[in-house]
Design a protein around this nucleic acid. Sequence first.
DNA 1: TTGAAAGCGCTAACAA
DNA 2: TTGTTAGCGCTTTCAA
Lengths: 366, 366
Amino acid sequence: MSVPARATSPSGSGSRPAARQPAPRAAPPAARAATRADVARHAGVSTAVVSYVVNEGPRRVAPETAARVRAAVEALDYSPNVAARALRMGSSEMLGLVVPDITNLFFAELAHAVESAAAEHGFLVTLASSGSDVDLERELVADLAGRNADGLMVSTVLTPEALTALPAPRRPTVLINVSAPFAGYAAVGSDARQGAYDLVEHLLGTHGHTSVALVIGESTERLPEPRERGFVEAFAAHGLPPGPVVRTAFSRTGGYDAVRRILAWRHRPDAIFLSSDQQASGAYRAVREAGLECPDDVALIAYDGTSQSAFSWPPLTVARQPVEAMARAALQAVLDPVNAPAHQQLPTELVVRRSCGCPSPPSPTA
Amino acid sequence: MSVPARATSPSGSGSRPAARQPAPRAAPPAARAATRADVARHAGVSTAVVSYVVNEGPRRVAPETAARVRAAVEALDYSPNVAARALRMGSSEMLGLVVPDITNLFFAELAHAVESAAAEHGFLVTLASSGSDVDLERELVADLAGRNADGLMVSTVLTPEALTALPAPRRPTVLINVSAPFAGYAAVGSDARQGAYDLVEHLLGTHGHTSVALVIGESTERLPEPRERGFVEAFAAHGLPPGPVVRTAFSRTGGYDAVRRILAWRHRPDAIFLSSDQQASGAYRAVREAGLECPDDVALIAYDGTSQSAFSWPPLTVARQPVEAMARAALQAVLDPVNAPAHQQLPTELVVRRSCGCPSPPSPTA
DNA sequence: TTGAAAGCGCTAACAA
DNA sequence: TTGTTAGCGCTTTCAA
């Protein structure tokens, strides 16, 4: 059997001609990794001692023995087999996070916040995205649990019914980004009702608008959707009938399509409330394409408030989700399940920028 | 031993005040998971048989025995301990992916593509982000390897020197999103030089611009940065001296700051080439804030072409990175390291939209 | 202060 | 067709 010629692609490195070297090693086939036994042998100690020095406990080791072990570790480039330790300990210093779509900036930022918070406690987090697929979500959760994840945080796409039908999870599990608690799970989310209320109230109160449309996605959560509730309540507080509601996908195109439709109505609303930053992104495009100006022709507001929202033009007025706080709360709940509240609902922050009609803040850091 | 009462948490329909109920079970403390031995006992067979059934091999099992086993699995809600299997097999059907910043849409889309491609081969991918921290990246890679990841894909923030100084990785490792091969690693990236060339040539050729500024980040890669090379070469092809180069962070604020500076120059360039979508996002804001119009006052083009770029206004002309192809190539390389080319450089796609001055495509799907 | 050894859950070679 | 069992790399109790 001849080894297939290792075609090095013409790496158009401007200066040097493409390397046509004698088979640059592409990816080293795994040389067997050193084990704790190898290190012990090399250092002339028992495997227990190696453990003690690697883990700095639970027994003391004579300084010079420890030094010998460390030298051996160095020499053999030893690194512990995490799977073995996880098996032995039944835990892995690792937490699992499952989100529907990592490509949605909100979830990416949430994941980032969770990672940071976990790192502070010495935990790594394994991130998996379910693509909003119910079966994949289930598989991912089971897999993570089987890897001895010490806890699971999941932004579920399951309905409450499907969720309660599930066998009790093996690991502390918290539902993240949900607006209502579910039996058997700790849950953390943002106060979407209040956030929506604040936003719409700002439009109605400060700007004196009277017609605001809501663009919202289909949620798997218990209805009525909290953002919709907040929307309705804000109108009620002003003695106004609630504005029209358009249901569409929680995506850029969802927002785009919905807003195009809305702008074609006989009576164009004063403002549109997008239920996510993603939808808002589509909304901007639809507004511009229609030759309209925001906020003069239509004001735009949105729920989420990812870092992108400060950079749209005009800058987007949002109810910012408390991403860091949610991450922290979820972590807390997962690390101390016994004392975890059934449901934590964290306040959003109203960030007024220019898309609602207010004067623009000086810079995108605002 | 009493079974802990399964307190169903108060389904907090926002109408009621916060729950102060008697300690609703937040997250069920792990009831010991059923093991293969439990299943065997329950089904009255040996553990081997359970293995055979669960793994559909390597030995045949009598249909009715198998049925009994499956029933037991069901009854005990058994799911295999992945860590144990990984330990035993030295492999885990899991691939590791390390990126600098999952909050950057480009990496999120890359991660998504990798996940999808991996799923087609029955692999899960564990995603970790390094926050562009060199030490964390190292730690993450070691950890993933210790978890018996079957392969690693890393978008490294290490310099080539630091990289070659590393001990040979234990697992097939491919560098993703790099423009040059490194000794000892398979690598895949996009042809950034060509992509940049196409973009700038479009400005120079089609639009007849003569002054284009480049905004680029500090790269850890071997210099000269390929995008910069393509930029320079395009000018050379038109017999023009290369435009000015501004170095800044690969971030929205980086782009914002750089463009603000550029717009304050005595001689404002006809166009600005942003080296990433993130920077472009900042650029838009800077242009608008300066009261300028794109593309009339300044044209904007960028490298990356994430899904967001179709939704800016005006829609952004980009060299789109071949995210899916890179993911596929990386996967291929990791699964078949022996035949992996040292470096694959995949072509970008020039996507002409309106920010360069061309007429707008009809819809964001274009 | 160090070593020997049991056992975490799983797979598969070997035996029955 | 099914059962028995060694051993993957690790931690830790117990003994020396």
